[in-house]
Design a protein around this nucleic acid. Sequence first.
DNA 1: ATGGGTGCAAAGTGTTTGCAAGTAT
DNA 2: ATACTTGCAAACACTTTGCACCCAT
Lengths: 141, 141
Amino acid sequence: MTKRDTRQRRLVLDAVRLRTDHPSADEIYLDVREKDNKISRGTVYRNLNVLAEGNEVTHVKVPSADRYDLRLDRHYHLFCISCGAVFDAPLPYQDDYDKRVEAETGFRIQRHRTIFEGFCPGCLAKAGRSAEVAHTPEEAL
Amino acid sequence: MTKRDTRQRRLVLDAVRLRTDHPSADEIYLDVREKDNKISRGTVYRNLNVLAEGNEVTHVKVPSADRYDLRLDRHYHLFCISCGAVFDAPLPYQDDYDKRVEAETGFRIQRHRTIFEGFCPGCLAKAGRSAEVAHTPEEAL
DNA sequence: ATGGGTGCAAAGTGTTTGCAAGTAT
DNA sequence: ATACTTGCAAACACTTTGCACCCAT
């Protein structure tokens, strides 16, 4: 039950580390595929799970498809509900939240995840350009 | 494009309002099915989406299957990573977070979602009972 | 009457898994 | 030698959708 150092696992880890844009499993698959056109989706998905469990990459849970993050410290994320882009949020992780909730609920808390939802600057610009009449980006998009 | 008041939509809304345990779409489907054994899954899923957009129910996004909440005010959730149960968290929604992130990132933030992950009291009890040797509920479960 | 809503079944999407063969330790 | 890993394809779980008919407005 020891974890092995396989060429495929190494390729997946390197691929995650080469990107700062929170890629999905499938995007990682496509990246790795450039270096090894034999590696299978299953292997990439399996390795991403293994690496996330081993805390070598971070699993970011957002709608539609999960993402992977090279950052290992706990932090929050921003999710663009228009284009799906994910960014790191500039707020510190609130450790005390976990303690407070644990004390008040009887849960044994491991962590919390916070996702900010909204429109990224790029999508706001597009919306502004294509619809002067619209009052919200939602209307324009 | 006006929303209609159909028997099916009413049944779905009522079903959500009768539960405080954050049921999944399929659980709502099963509940509604007791009152109307003809209603289809598609209709329930469609109506849950319509009701969530219209802010008549709240969509809670957790791993595996999304849940629905009768509460309409913004609040955080606890998710048991062992049994999948969802509870409301006893912490106030931080409005200022949205403003701060908006100011610092250029995003237009609509809201944020926070999910606490851990083991619920019930699962902790089970784990404690079935494994005195284990040091963490993870080991025991 | 008319355009949203429904039931049904099929199609999606993203991810996991069973199996036989391969390989790190 | 042992047991973790891989590639492949099939299976999965959850959700959405196309279509013809229906019904609230």
